[in-house]
Simulated assay, not measured.
Amino acid sequence: MRVDFTKMHGLGNDFVVLDARETPLPAISNATASALADRNTGVGCDQLIVLEPSDDHDFRMRIYNSDGGEVEACGNASRAVAMLHGSPATVETAGGAIRLEPAQGGASVDMGEPRFEWDAIPLAYAMDTANMPVGWGELEAGIAVNVGNPHVIFFVQDADAVDLAELGPQIETDALFPERINVNVASRLSDNHLKLRVWERGAGLTRACGTGACATAVAAISRLHMKSPVTVSLPGGDLEIAWERGESIVMTGPATESFRGSFEWNDFA
Results as ranks from 00 to 15, higher is better:
residue 4 D to L: 15
residue 4 D to M: 13
residue 5 F to S: 01
residue 7 K to H: 06
residue 8 M to A: 14
residue 11 L to N: 07
residue 11 L to W: 03
residue 11 L to M: 06
residue 12 G to Q: 03
residue 12 G to K: 00
residue 12 G to L: 02
residue 12 G to D: 06
residue 15 F to N: 03
residue 19 D to L: 06
residue 22 E to H: 13
residue 29 S to G: 13
residue 30 N to M: 13
residue 31 A to I: 10
residue 31 A to L: 12
residue 33 A to R: 05
residue 34 S to V: 05
residue 37 A to W: 04
residue 39 R to K: 14
residue 41 T to D: 10
residue 46 D to L: 04
residue 49 I to N: 00
residue 50 V to P: 00
residue 51 L to D: 05
residue 53 P to M: 09
residue 54 S to T: 07
residue 56 D to K: 14
residue 56 D to F: 13
residue 56 D to T: 15
residue 57 H to D: 14
residue 58 D to L: 06
residue 59 F to A: 11
residue 60 R to W: 05
residue 63 I to R: 00
residue 64 Y to F: 15
residue 64 Y to T: 02
residue 67 D to A: 08
residue 68 G to K: 02
residue 69 G to L: 12
residue 69 G to C: 13
residue 70 E to W: 06
residue 71 V to E: 05
residue 75 G to E: 06
residue 77 A to K: 00
residue 83 M to K: 15
residue 92 E to Q: 14
residue 92 E to D: 14
residue 92 E to G: 09
residue 100 L to Y: 00
residue 102 P to K: 07
residue 107 A to V: 00
residue 109 V to F: 05
residue 113 E to I: 11
residue 118 W to G: 05
residue 118 W to E: 06
residue 122 P to D: 09
residue 122 P to Q: 03
residue 129 T to C: 07
residue 131 N to M: 11
residue 134 V to I: 13
residue 134 V to N: 09
residue 137 G to A: 05
residue 141 A to M: 09
residue 141 A to K: 13
residue 141 A to C: 10
residue 142 G to L: 09
residue 144 A to R: 01
residue 147 V to F: 10
residue 147 V to W: 02
residue 148 G to I: 07
residue 150 P to D: 03
residue 151 H to F: 03
residue 151 H to I: 07
residue 151 H to E: 10
residue 152 V to S: 04
residue 153 I to Q: 04
residue 158 D to V: 08
residue 159 A to R: 12
residue 162 V to A: 00
residue 166 E to R: 14
residue 168 G to N: 02
residue 169 P to N: 01
residue 170 Q to M: 13
residue 172 E to W: 06
residue 176 L to G: 07
residue 179 E to A: 14
residue 181 I to V: 14
residue 182 N to V: 00
residue 183 V to W: 05
residue 184 N to A: 03
residue 185 V to G: 05
residue 186 A to R: 01
residue 191 D to I: 11
residue 193 H to I: 10
residue 195 K to M: 12
residue 197 R to I: 05
residue 197 R to Y: 09
residue 197 R to N: 02
residue 200 E to N: 10
residue 201 R to F: 00
residue 202 G to F: 02
residue 202 G to P: 03
residue 203 A to G: 06
residue 203 A to F: 07
residue 204 G to E: 04
residue 205 L to R: 11
residue 211 T to Y: 06
residue 216 T to S: 15
residue 218 V to S: 07
residue 220 A to W: 03
residue 220 A to I: 07
residue 223 R to C: 04
residue 232 V to L: 07
residue 232 V to K: 01
residue 237 G to Y: 04
residue 238 D to C: 12
residue 239 L to P: 01
residue 248 S to N: 15
residue 249 I to M: 14
residue 250 V to Q: 11
residue 250 V to F: 13
residue 252 T to A: 14
residue 253 G to S: 06
residue 254 P to Y: 09
residue 254 P to Q: 12
residue 257 E to K: 15
residue 258 S to V: 15
residue 262 S to R: 14
residue 265 W to G: 03
residue 267 D to L: 06
residue 269 A to C: 15
